[in-house]
């Protein structure tokens, strides 16, 4: 009796059609149906930010949206952000600065950081901290993440 709906969506630039149980949330769909395991499931109640993905150009919690709600929309995950190179500067800075340890928060953290950068966020440590305050990282203590984001924005500003 499971309610199922057909959806058409674009994920990381690829269009496809799927039949999904309506109760399945977006991140479970991306991970389990599409094999896009870069997005992680950390809390399933919208607090930790590990499942942060882009939907129609804006970051959302993948656990607070149903897959069926992505019908007709464009979804971009860490895999897509990597392939397009959009996250390249941040990824390089995160690597240089060791802005990750276990890496579980990293895809969601990068998505949030990228949104900050692309919306014209300033090279301002307090503002960066505020923006990523919805992404939990248990390992780093955040400083190195702030450093990396700051560095990317400052480098862009310098150009």
């Amino acid at each position: 009796m499971t309610a199922i709906e057909e959806i058409n969506l674009t994920v990381n630039g690829e269009r496809s059609t799927h039949r999904v149980p309506v109760r399945m949330n977006l991140v479970d769909f991306l991970r389990n149906e599409l094999g896009l395991t870069g997005s992680h499931v950390g809390c399933e109640h919208g607090v930790c930010g590990a499942c942060t993905v882009e939907v129609n150009g804006a970051c959302v919690r993948g656990c607070l949206m149903l897959a069926v709600q992505a019908d007709g929309l464009e979804v971009t995950t860490i895999e897509g952000l990597t392939a397009s190179g959009r996250a390249g500067a941040l990824q390089a800075a995160f690597h240089r600065r060791n802005s990750l340890q276990c890496g579980f928060c990293t895809p969601g953290m990068l998505a949030s950081a990228l949104e900050y950068c692309e919306r014209g966020g300033a090279a301002d440590r307090a503002a960066i901290r505020e923006h990523i305050a919805g992404n939990y990282c248990r390992c780093t203590g955040y400083q190195s993440i702030v450093d990396a984001i700051y560095e990317v924005i400052a480098a862009e500003e310098a150009q």
Binding site: L36, S39, T77, T82, F104
Partner: peptide
């Protein structure tokens, strides 16, 4: 190994 984790290939 960080390179892998950064691109969602953990």
């Amino acid at each position: 190994d960080a390179a892998r984790l950064l691109v969602g290939r953990g």
